[in-house]
Write a protein that binds this DNA or RNA. Sequence first.
DNA 1: TATTTTAGCGTAAAATACACGCATAGTATG
DNA 2: CATACTATGCGTGTATTTTACGCTAAAATA
Lengths: 224, 224
Amino acid sequence: MQQSIQLSVDAVVFGYESGVISVLLIKRKYDPFKGKWAIPGGFVLNNESLEEAVARELREETGIEINYLEQLYTFGEPKRDPRSRVVSVAYFGLIKPSAFKIFASTDAEEVQWFNIETLPELSFDHSEILRIAIARLQAKITYEPIGFELLDVKFPFSDLEKLYTTLLGRPIDRRNFRKKILSLNVLDELDEKFSKGSGRPANLFKFNNKRYFKLKEEGIIFDI
Amino acid sequence: MQQSIQLSVDAVVFGYESGVISVLLIKRKYDPFKGKWAIPGGFVLNNESLEEAVARELREETGIEINYLEQLYTFGEPKRDPRSRVVSVAYFGLIKPSAFKIFASTDAEEVQWFNIETLPELSFDHSEILRIAIARLQAKITYEPIGFELLDVKFPFSDLEKLYTTLLGRPIDRRNFRKKILSLNVLDELDEKFSKGSGRPANLFKFNNKRYFKLKEEGIIFDI
DNA sequence: TATTTTAGCGTAAAATACACGCATAGTATG
DNA sequence: CATACTATGCGTGTATTTTACGCTAAAATA
């Protein structure tokens, strides 16, 4: 018997801006689930790798170019797509929403960032995919430094702190957090001050790419 | 253009016995790579889930029944199969080799346990798959208790210790290891002694299933 | 009975995590 | 221009965990 399974890829892209974690969704232009929100994605072409496929679909549907997407999980329940058997390899990425202008095209009627606290109803099993992606994101910050992809190039320390409190969903001791992060030696302190309104102006920091990515590869486990 | 991609599953099954970690491989009966060793696996049927497919292939080719296989990674490079485009979802499992009698059938001409230190040349990109699986196994023991699946029901503490030294590839302090593991409260000490040759006989332990699986779900991180 | 072998307990030192006080450098206000 | 206010950033003591390692116990073997 001939196998008749189709293969797709999906991209869960998270963004962070001033205390809010959001995810990029598209409104589907065609059936099934026409007019409903979904994770960007689509079918893999015969001669492209999975990574090429997911980067292409993301670019086509949302306008976002992302250079690093990590494989999340492969979803293959026989009935997950009402049309036919579709197995989907989900990917996972982080960006600064401000760094890209999003625009809908091809299969997407609309593109929008959604706060992960207030998600709309989703197509297919995309709620499940998103649930797993959010769990991965939260697990990730306990074994990898995160921030480079989500923060501006230059940022005050409090931005990083806020990112972590948001991701962890609980307050952290500012003083101990600072000590721990600085001891990792992945931040370079700049000679620039930054002030937003009242309060003592903060020094700006930037990630030291080399040490940052070295640390990520080593997979440092650090409890916050 | 019609998509023409085939979907397969592969199962990397690790076993442990007296200081040796091994992996289950089959010798391929048909081309491509006829007569070469490979990870067990095969094509997904139209109406079965990925988990059902991998369990079935493993049973058919090797005789092993395994109830828990964890998804490892999906491999989708266009040229990984010389015949046509085949994307494969790889799974990962642990068993006690002694608990099953292996026998080759269907696509397998032979089945055999191989010490992971002395692997033969493998078919397709299976060396790459195995490399990733071994890395996962080694990472896993630092954040999850492992042993239940790999040891006998009743075992002396030194068996667990030996398993860990083997997996970690380095010696560990026996006294501290014992304290750490016992403090997890997943072992029940039995009133049975066990002696293999000279030396003081050891008490036997067994895993307390309930607490063991509870701990696994919580995903305890413990440095050895 | 002495020796060898493996099991298993305890304790001190070092490292790390945790809690929290307070000076500092700006802005806002009367 | 003094005073309050706000957020940054440094330091220090204490609890907890990790690490190192000494030593006794129980059995097989010589």
